[in-house]
Write a protein that binds this DNA or RNA. Structure first.
Lengths: 193, 193
DNA sequence: GTTTTTGTTGATTGACGAGTCAATAAACTT
DNA sequence: AAGTTTATTGACTCGTCAATCAACAAAAAC
């Protein structure tokens, strides 16, 4: 009984189910059937809309990165000074929408996917470059020439805190994650000499 | 033509081949046959010695963690002061033996494996705890109460730099990786107030 | 010199899973 | 109302792969 206009709903449901399934399984070795079942449809329909498992994964990854970007942009919207913008980027990175168990686990898996799938690699690089560029831009007036190195350090630290959260048992501790990254930033911002 | 005493040689060859194969493929989705071929034997023999693919992976992971531990211990052996020991741990983490493309990629994949395989999880936790404990111990006399947070930060940063290296194209830049982590450490060690 | 242990593999089994297809049905179009 | 487009699925194909097995070979033990 086809209600028309199902496509976008189905696609969204599949993306959501993919993140959940991969997140729960902690692995990309999940079947299209599992994902489809979770999204309330047959695996044939999933293939009908996405063509391949690969495309399903890519769509899920895009969704995660888009959400992350929106989260950061949201945090950024109210900030004006360089320092407050910097802190907004950091805290946006750990916003509740992104910093959730399944999402983090899925993130880690997509990181691995980027080693194999060129398109996934490209997506991740875009995100990394944008993040670093944002950080560098705000850091420049605060730490001058060290901006590049600090931006890279911050980016790596954020990733590190993320994947450690994937492994920690229990719900990810947003406050603590934020504290670690914030302290790093605080130290770097204490201008000397 | 069986030369006796083949077992340890075969096992080592399989472990090496596993790290290489996983590292090159950038994925755990490699077949036992691929690994075995690379190690110069039939897949049946691989199963004969390890029983299952899972056990092969675990042995490879143990090997990586053991090498890493040895590398750190080696760097530590010549250091005496708390600060030099701290720096030894950090630079040991990026020793040429561990900080190599395939190894890093394999590491990342084993990180993912730890989400699925309890034994892999256990191994990784042991490594993490030992690292943090070492760092904390050397940090205590230098940064006092902040030792715990700094140790966690350092651990996360090291992991972050590692996985970023897995994704960077070209050979991993040890000097740069070291520089980032060292700068973090420098900032934290600049005692104030 | 026969039996046992260790090493080794080709062939096979059995399961699983991505992707396809034919068929069915409800909407929209003309 | 006939035809077209969109939605949907059960059944099937085809490939892959972990794991097992039967068999063979050489060294060691007896």
């Amino acid at each position: 009984m086809p209600k028309l206009g199902a496509e976008p709903i189905r696609r969204a449901a599949l993306v959501k189910a993919t993140i959940e399934t991969v997140g729960e399984a902690g692995s990309l070795e999940v079947t299209v059937a599992q994902i489809a079942r979770r999204a309330g449809m047959s695996s044939a329909l999933a293939h009908h809309y996405f063509g391949s498992k690969e495309q399903i994964f890519l769509a899920a990854m895009r969704s995660i990165l888009t959400l992350y970007g929106a989260e950061v942009r949201g945090a950024l919207s109210t900030a004006t000074t360089a320092e407050s913008r910097l802190r907004a980027i950091v805290s946006g990175s750990f916003a509740p929408g992104s910093f959730r168990r399944e999402t983090i686990s899925a993130w880690l898996n997509f990181y691995v996917l980027a080693q194999t799938l060129p398109e996934a690699y490209r997506l991740l690089r875009v995100y990394q470059r944008r993040l670093r560029s944002n950080l560098r831009h705000e850091l420049r007036p605060l730490v001058g020439a060290r901006a590049e190195a600090v931006a890279r350090g911050l980016g790596a630290l954020i990733d590190g805190v993320y994947i450690r959260a994937a492994l920690a048992d229990g719900a990810p501790d947003r406050a603590y994650a934020l504290k670690i990254v914030t302290e790093y930033l605080d130290r770097e911002l204490e201008v000397r000499e």
